[in-house]
Design a protein around this nucleic acid. Structure first.
Lengths: 139, 139
DNA sequence: AATGCAATGCAACGGCGTTGCAAAACAAAT
DNA sequence: ATTTGTTTTGCAACGCCGTTGCATTGCATT
């Protein structure tokens, strides 16, 4: 696992630092999306706020993580699939936000349905945000 | 037109004030969504920042406008259709954000495609955010 | 082990959204 | 039209979020 984390960083030509290893591992361990506050909380006082912001930005730039549009307009990040690269995200999958526990899931295997737009509109990206109750809370 | 604005306010049991008339008319005139900054800008120094925030919140509570999930996580508002009521939004339509001019359109007549979720997930709302170039910029 | 460069921590800043409170505006009834 | 009670507004202040500049530290390479 530790090895895996370092490999991802190396593959993206990033130097190996404690904060990058820690933050990236949080994403790998998590099944959902993380907000800045989640990371700050889960890493304790280990890293400065600013470092977390910059690390997240670096990961986005490199195509390691991506931001998610949310109904409450909070900023959340999730791991990209393998076919994402620097400046070239391919994350047209469905995101699910649980109204109960707040967890955000990336439903990778669900394909985004095609949306037919009026003439003259050119589509570059489609994001689907589904709200409801997740399978963990729905018991 | 002026009459129309007042009617909407009355129908929602809101007292008629200058700021509410002005802000509501901005939404009626606009073909797209508005951010707080847009409203503050278009109404000049006429109203306090706080009044705009509170007016928008009131409109959301009454079901007159709704917030839109955006890819850049900016907060934008748009008029609701007639079947929205207080605390009961029905805005499962498609939103389009133009990467060029920044305009956000509500494509009411486009139906949201059904998304099939894994077992245990209960859907209450589906938002589709499409990015690209609008028909106004695509010439 | 030394050197150059990149990343971090600290301090400070600006912007956004909220809250409390006094003043002003609205609605209803006389 | 005037009064009265309630709602709304404006002002001031606050806290939070995200960013920037700069000195220090840590990483990678030889």
């Amino acid at each position: 696992m530790e090895k895996n984390i370092v490999d991802i960083l190396k593959k993206n030509q990033l130097s190996i630092t404690d904060s990058r290893k820690k933050i990236l591992s949080l994403f790998v361990q998590s099944n959902g999306a993380l907000a800045h506050a989640d990371i700050e909380h889960q890493s304790g006082t280990e890293f400065d706020r600013v470092t977390i912001y910059r690390t997240l930005q670096t990961f986005v730039d490199k195509g390691i993580i991506h931001t998610i549009p949310t109904t409450d307009n909070s900023v959340r990040y999730a791991l990209c699939k393998d076919d994402c690269s620097a400046g070239h995200h391919h994350d047209d999958h469905v995101h699910f936000m649980c109204d109960n526990c707040g967890t955000t899931y990336c439903l990778d295997h669900i394909t985004v349905p095609a949306v037919k737009l009026p003439k003259g509109f050119k589509v570059t990206q489609t994001d689907v945000v589904v709200s409801g109750v997740c399978n963990n809370c729905n018991n």
